[in-house]
């Protein structure tokens, strides 16, 4: 356990000045600020809308890109970055000659990547709520204060997190095995595009394909939201759907597989 904590702290120490770390903070901040100014400058048109409709538009704009492309690509990038730092510096050999078990080194790295994903999603949630409420203050004509969807958003972001675990394990393993940029990024990008198409066309087995899970989660939200904007939509998130089950099983399976590969792999 001590080895794990030391390794985890070292991961933070190493990456705190890198793009991987800061992108997880700046990305949600930048997107939310952009949206904030978008709503701010179009406040005259938006003033007619109900609070619920405003919140759905505001949060939905983020969740839409998030599910289709942003979240999977962010995971591809984070998984690549935390491994690439060792490939680039040729430091795998030093990591595996530390008096720390290989499992601690491996799991600390994986959980650090997971930590970055959690941090990024949590910031998206926080900034969405924060900037929405800020709009209500600076533009009282926008009725953001008339409606609350904190718990719904928290649940949907939590479901997005669960839906991303499968890809995280796969991308983490790919980035660990391949030192070049193109393989994990290329595979991740192609697989994500395919996932979007599969989930978008409503293929019935899309739930088995991990790169579709984020999209499926966002789609399930639309279904939950229901039809008209005026009527109070049914806000419920079914957390544990089939796709989430597949995502969790894959995440754990590939994580364990990766550990056995690390055990057997020669460190060049």
């Amino acid at each position: 356990m001590k080895g794990f904590i030391l390794s985890f702290r070292s991961e933070f120490y190493k990456t705190r000045k890198t793009a991987a770390f800061w992108s997880a903070i700046i990305l949600p901040l930048a997107i939310c600020i952009l949206l904030f100014f978008g709503f701010f400058s179009h406040s005259d048109n938006l003033a007619k809308q109900s609070g619920a409709a405003l919140w759905f538009q505001f949060s939905g704009a983020i969740l839409g890109v998030m599910g289709s492309l942003l979240l999977p690509m962010l995971i591809v990038f984070i998984a690549y970055s935390v491994n690439n730092i060792e490939h680039k510096a040729e430091t795998w050999k030093t990591l595996f000659t530390l008096p720390i078990s290989k499992f601690s080194v491996y799991s600390a790295k994986y959980l650090y990547a997971l930590f970055l994903v959690i941090m990024c999603l949590a910031l998206f949630l926080l900034f969405t709520l924060g900037f929405g409420n800020l709009l209500a203050v600076v533009k009282p004509t926008l009725k953001f204060n008339e409606y609350h969807m904190e718990s719904f958003l928290a649940q949907i972001y939590f479901k997005l997190l669960l839906s991303s675990l499968g890809i995280l394990s796969i991308q983490f393993l790919l980035s660990l095995l391949f030192r070049d940029f193109l393989k994990p990024m290329g595979i991740g990008f192609a697989a994500t595009i395919m996932g979007v198409i599969l989930a978008g066309t409503g293929w019935q087995y899309a739930y088995l394909y991990p790169y579709s899970h984020a999209m499926l989660t966002v789609k399930s939200m639309h279904a939950a939201k229901g039809g008209s904007d005026q009527a109070m939509p049914q806000l419920a998130v079914d957390l544990f759907t089939k796709d989430i089950g597949v995502s969790l099983v894959l995440a754990i399976g590939v994580f364990v597989l990766g550990y056995f590969i690390v055990l057997r792999k020669s460190v060049k």
Binding site: K14, K17, T18, K88, A89, E90, T91, K93, T94, T97
Partner: peptide
Amino acid sequence: GSLIEQPAIYSHL
């Protein structure tokens, strides 16, 4: 303590 081939150093630190 070991040093193998070229030193393993994080160049951004």
